[in-house]
């Protein structure tokens, strides 16, 4: 299982080590870590609470991951997303992609993040220092980020980008 939804923190270097243990076929590893910002719209944030839909969250992340594997020659991937109350600076999400060459790893990591943001059922609520809560609005730029992936970017078989 390479998808995990958890309240606990994660350690990116530990996940990379686990993903690549005893493997010599991998030539490129890309990681993305999303963290909690301490301010939003000029206001300071005391904490960020992530609500999710248990069951559907895991299913949706697995679907997105399977699509990335169908699209790029990936050797391994890991997606970890936290839920619950998180403080500014805390880790929210980790995406790791491993491939023989860097292009697939870079592109797949971006694809995973774009699709995860638009489909995985998580909702962020910011709590300000004075205790007021605010549900974060979905950003139109996140929807726009998906549009580019509708292009047929499947790598041409036999063409190996430089590693």
């Amino acid at each position: 299982m390479s998808v995990r939804v958890q309240a606990d923190d994660f350690d990116a270097s530990h996940e990379i080590a686990a993903l690549t243990a005893n493997r010599t076929d991998i030539g490129a590893i890309v990681t993305f870590t999303g963290t909690v910002r301490g301010e939003a719209k000029g206001k300071s944030i005391a904490s960020m609470t992530l609500e999710h839909y248990p069951g559907m969250t895991e299913a949706e992340l697995e679907r997105v991951e399977a699509e990335a594997h169908a699209r790029w020659p990936l050797d391994a991937t890991r997606i970890i997303h936290r839920f619950g109350e998180l403080k500014p600076g805390a880790n929210i999400v980790l995406v790791v992609t491993a491939s023989r060459h860097r292009q697939a790893a870079f592109e797949a990591a971006e694809y995973l993040m774009d699709y995860l943001k638009s489909r995985a059922p998580f909702w962020k609520k910011e709590t300000a220092a004075d205790g007021t809560g605010n549900w974060v609005d979905a950003r139109e730029t996140d929807e726009a980020a998906l549009a580019r992936w509708n292009l047929p970017v499947k790598p041409t078989p036999g063409v190996k980008p430089a590693g």
Partner: peptide, 23 residues
Amino acid sequence: HVKPDAPIAGAREIAFFPPVTGG
């Protein structure tokens, strides 16, 4: 995920929520 015109026949569980904001 489904669109508003999706039929509910055969549904075991239907959920309603705002646009998602994870990541």
